[in-house]
Design a binder for these strands. Structure first.
Length: 480
RNA sequence: UGAGGCGUGGUGCAGCUUGGUAGCACGCUUGGUUCGGGACCAAGAGGUCGUGGGUUCAAAUCCCAUCGCUUCAACCA
């Protein structure tokens, strides 16, 4: 029996942070680059991002969104037109001051987000109500000069999509921002097997320049919150600042209502943390680049084993399963451990003993359970098994999330939940006391209001701190 | 930005206190035997010890500076 320590993965319960870094590296998702805060997305990591892109492109295009690409650099004057926006982002901008060997007449920032560029462009796109709505999206990377960085979760550069749309009415814009949020939420459920808490950000946590920010929040194994995607209703502030006007149906000049929305490679961080275990990565089948790894046993002395394995590979491919046959001369034990570390959802073993019985051994990565399956049933049953794995993983994560949203009626209860890492302290507050509540939570517990869930069913009468009549449900937590 | 830890073949580390021929494990290459949970044997390749300066006959080792990585806090997707 091999010693597990060979893998050099720190135990997840022992030190989550170290475990996380180990998994990112050992599962070959990324590598560190020369510059602090910058990482190399390796093929197995980038493939996950590609699957997110594929899913989202399909969903947003169905809503009429089209992909575009805008420049990396933003001239300083352009960035400064919307004052809330610039004051929010200025501290973390990377600035280009030289072109070739000459100082630039006007310094440029490397985009931290592209609202300003989009708005500048929109001015020449929108002239009439007939031009609305405008629905653009961009896949790109952005730069934010972060002080402390972690692979995928927080980096100086990260990959994301940023959608930018203009609408005639506030109602339409808000509804659109919410439609995108629902798509993000469904992506969590259907692709990533991650349950999110959907809701709205309190004023103090809004995006710089937004009227309202909607969010999906996930709870990590240490009970901390991970903001996993946001959509913003930005009102007409940006259009006004950038002079985006049009003539409406009544021949009057009007400003369009603006939304922007994004998810980033941070989702990969969530994926790793939510599902991974001490053996390494655990991938839900829908997003896994390889869904089934075939490990032939004793194939050298039994040529028909490899032959059968190839047949199975072909059949599964035709059934739409992403399958990989490892016919290298590594030992089976090595392959088992390897594909566990890489998180491949299902392992298929086939050896001489199986051949005799006309079956294979299937091992599910996420719960280590084994099933035997007749070879001629594989193409039919493996896709079902993958579905079952996805559901199993989602339900497991959902149970965890539900256990880690704790209704608290007093500050003491909330304190207990936060300090013991039991997740979100769900409280009732009075909007009149918002500032006071947030201040106390921040100062004493280092907790911030993560989300006002759309599910606002009240569970208490009074504000959990001040005792005023309560009107709002808020989840407080510590954030990544 | 504060407080710790670490920079030595590809990876993980030992060596440093007490200066004197750069070592171990894993990985890699070649050949052979193996193969149902990280196999074994044999032969090989691979390092100006983060960087710069200083002390010394002599520095991975002592001194000064500097850069980077990392963990924990504060700030942020």
């Amino acid at each position: 029996m091999a010693d597990k320590k060979v893998k050099n993965i720190t135990s997840k319960s022992e030190n989550l942070t170290q475990w996380y870094t180990d998994v990112c590296l050992k599962a070959e998702l990324m590598d560190y680059a020369q510059m602090k805060g910058f990482i190399i997305y390796r093929p197995d990591g980038y493939a996950l991002w590609e699957n997110i892109q594929e899913y989202l492109n399909k969903r947003i295009k169905a809503l009429g969104v089209r992909n575009v690409y805008l420049p990396t650099l933003i001239p300083m004057n352009l960035l400064q037109k919307e004052k809330d926006h610039i004051s929010g982002f200025a501290p973390e901008c990377a600035v280009v001051t030289r072109g070739g060997n000459k100082p630039l007449a006007e310094e440029c920032v490397v985009r931290p987000t592209s609202e300003t560029l989009f708005c500048d462009h929109f001015r020449s796109v929108v002239h009439s109500y007939n031009d609305l709505p405008v629905k653009y999206n961009q896949w790109c990377s952005v730069i934010r000069w972060e002080k402390t960085t972690r692979p995928f979760l927080r980096g100086s550069e990260f990959l994301w999509q940023e959608g930018h749309t203009l609408h005639e009415s506030e109602v339409e814009a808000r509804e659109f921002a919410l439609s995108i949020l629902r798509i993000y939420n469904e992506m969590g459920r259907d692709l990533l097997a991650i349950p999110f808490v959907m809701g709205q950000k309190p004023a103090s946590e809004k995006f710089a320049g937004a009227v309202d920010t909607y969010t999906i929040e996930a709870i990590m194994p240490d009970g901390q919150a991970l903001q996993s995607g946001t959509t913003h209703y930005l009102g007409t502030g940006f259009p006004e600042a950038y002079g985006i006007k049009y003539q409406d149906k009544d021949n009057k000049i009007a400003y369009p209502h603006y939304t922007s929305w994004g998810v980033s490679t941070r989702l990969l961080g969530a994926l790793i943390m939510v599902h991974g275990d001490d053996e390494g990565l655990v991938l839900p089948p829908k997003i896994a680049p390889i869904q089934v790894a075939i490990v032939p046993i004793r194939m050298d002395s039994n040529p028909e084993v490899l032959k059968k394995a190839r047949e199975i590979e072909e059949k599964l491919k035709n059934a739409g399963v992403r399958v990989y046959l490892d016919d290298s001369d590594k030992t089976p034990g090595w392959k088992f451990a390897q594909y566990e570390m890489k998180g491949i959802p299902l392992r298929l073993e086939i050896g001489p003993k199986d051949m005799e019985k006309g079956q294979v051994v299937l091992t599910k990565r996420y719960d280590s359970s084994k099933v035997f399956m007749n070879i001629d049933e594989l193409e039919e049953k493996i896709p079902l098994l993958l579905e079952e794995i996805h559901t199993g993983m989602y339900n497991k994560a959902l149970a965890f999330t539900n256990e880690h949203i704790v209704e608290c009626r007093t500050f003491e209860e909330a304190k207990d939940v936060i300090t013991s890492g039991r997740g979100f302290a769900k409280v009732m507050t009075s909007s009149a006391c918002e500032e006071e509540d947030e201040k106390k939570m921040k100062e004493e517990l280092n907790a911030t209001p993560r989300v006002m869930p759309f599910d606002q069913r009240p569970f208490a009468e009074k504000d959990f701190i001040t005792g005023e009549d309560a009107d709002t449900v808020i989840c407080f937590g510590r954030a990544y």
